[in-house]
Each structure stands twice: as C-alpha cells, then as structure tokens.
Simulated assay, not measured.
Amino acid sequence: MAFSADELRVLRRALALALHPAPLPADEVRECLRLADSVDEAIREAGRLRAFLLADLARYRAALPGSATGYLELLQDALAAGYRPQPDDLTALRSLRGLPLGAALLARCQGIAERSVRARLARTAPGTPGITAPAAPGPRTRLTALPGGRGAGGPALPRAAGAARAAEPPAAPGRPAPADRPAPPRPVPTPAEAFPPRKKPAPPGERREAS
C-alpha cells in the first residue's frame, strides 16, 4: 500500500493527535475521514485481488502439466501475499521438481507446511498455556472417635459403663484407681428384713405407770 504526500501528511497529523489529543479544525477532520475511507477501500481491493489470484492459481494447477510456467509464477505471487500451500500444491510441485523453479518452490512449500503442522501440534499438546491439568483431590477429612467407641488399645465399652466411669470421682493421690470391673450384685433381702415384726402393746397397768 502506497500513500501520496498529502496522505502521509494527514496520517502523520492523525498519529500525533492519537498521542496528544487536541481539538481539530473542521477541514482537518474531513481530511482524516477521507484518508480512513481510502485505507478501507485499499483493504477491500487487496482482498479482491487475493481472491482473483487464488482462483487463477487453482485454474493453472488444474491445467498442469501444460501450464507449469504460469502455475509456478502465480504460486510465487501467492506465497509472497501470505498464501499457505495446500496438499494439492505439494502434489503438483512434486510432479514439477524436474524444473529448477519447481524444486525450489517445493522445498519452500514443504518448510511452510512443516512449520504450520508443528505450530498446530504445539497449540493442542498438553502442558501448553491455555490447557489446565485436572486438579488434585483435596485431603480427606480425619474421622474423630465417638463417645463409647473403640479405644486405641482396648475393646469397645458399653455406653452405660462409659457414663458410670465419667460419674466416678477422681482417685485420690497415692491410691490406685479402681479396677474396671462390675460392682458385686446386691443381696436379696429376706422376708424378715423386708417385713420386721411389730412390737406387742404393753398391758394397761404398765401404761399407767409409764404415764
């Protein structure tokens, strides 16, 4: 893309305004708008020329081997414009490797294709930026022992026995702690202990003396 002297002046002024904003006269605003329209039109024209070039390249490739000279020249122009060779181009160049220009373009296109494949593999390989590895599982929550459960060194205790032990007063210093054994069974009372005999009433004379 080539700019005229007037277009370069407007472009320089627009860049200066981008760095140091300031109010513009109306005529300079119109010049900047005209330059922007010209740049847009040049971009559209470049797109149209590229489409025509690729269409001609496909027609010359289909007419090989008779169109070898025209095809190689068009392929050179397309590569200079950023064209990436297709598999059909590599196949056609292999058939034209007997020509010096064909062999040179074949080596050039193979290098472009290899770099493109390596870049595509690098984007999809694990460990590259943008691909995250699965997160490791978090640490497990430790389980705590419940009251009445199995201790570290002995069998499980019944819940009632655990409650009774908690209700016992602490052992005095110097005295051994009571052994973990059940209390002896309580003796069954006899009928005489459960129902003691009543005292006989005293005779009337004894009651008068006592009074």
Rank of each mutant, 00 (worst) to 15 (best):
T128A: 03
E41Y: 09
I112S: 00
R181W: 09
T141W: 08
R61H: 03
E45T: 12
A179C: 09
L105Y: 00
L105F: 02
T128Y: 01
L19M: 09
G47N: 10
L57G: 00
G102R: 04
R44E: 09
A210R: 12
G153E: 07
L8M: 15
A51E: 13
D56W: 07
R12C: 05
A80F: 11
A18R: 11
S38I: 07
F195V: 14
R181H: 07
E41N: 06
G70C: 05
L17N: 15
R181G: 03
L17M: 11
G127M: 00
A164F: 14
G154E: 04
L99D: 13
S4C: 01
A51S: 15
L19C: 03
L17K: 07
F195G: 01
A167K: 14
S67D: 09
P139L: 01
M1Q: 08
V39W: 10
T190K: 04
A81S: 08
R44W: 11
E31H: 13
P158M: 03
A2P: 01
D27I: 10
A46Y: 03
L143S: 05
R207D: 06
G82N: 05
K200D: 14
G130W: 07
M1E: 13
R34E: 07
E41Q: 15
G205C: 09
R84Y: 12
A163C: 04
A177V: 13
R159D: 09
A164G: 14
P182E: 12
E28L: 11
V117I: 11
L93Q: 07
R150G: 00
D88M: 07
R59H: 06
L49Q: 12
R208P: 05
P196D: 05
Q76M: 10
G82E: 04
L121T: 01
R165S: 00
R186A: 09
R175L: 13
R9K: 12
Q76A: 05
G148A: 00
R207E: 10
D56G: 09
A5P: 05
L64S: 00
L11A: 14
V10R: 02
R48Q: 10
P184I: 03
T128I: 02
Q86D: 06
E193R: 15
G138T: 04
R12N: 15
P100C: 01
C32A: 11
P139D: 01
R61V: 00
L49E: 15
R207K: 10
A80D: 14
P203Y: 07
P87N: 00
P185T: 09
Q86R: 12
R59F: 03
G153V: 07
P191Y: 06
R186F: 12
A135T: 00
E73G: 02
Q86G: 03
P173I: 06
G98M: 05
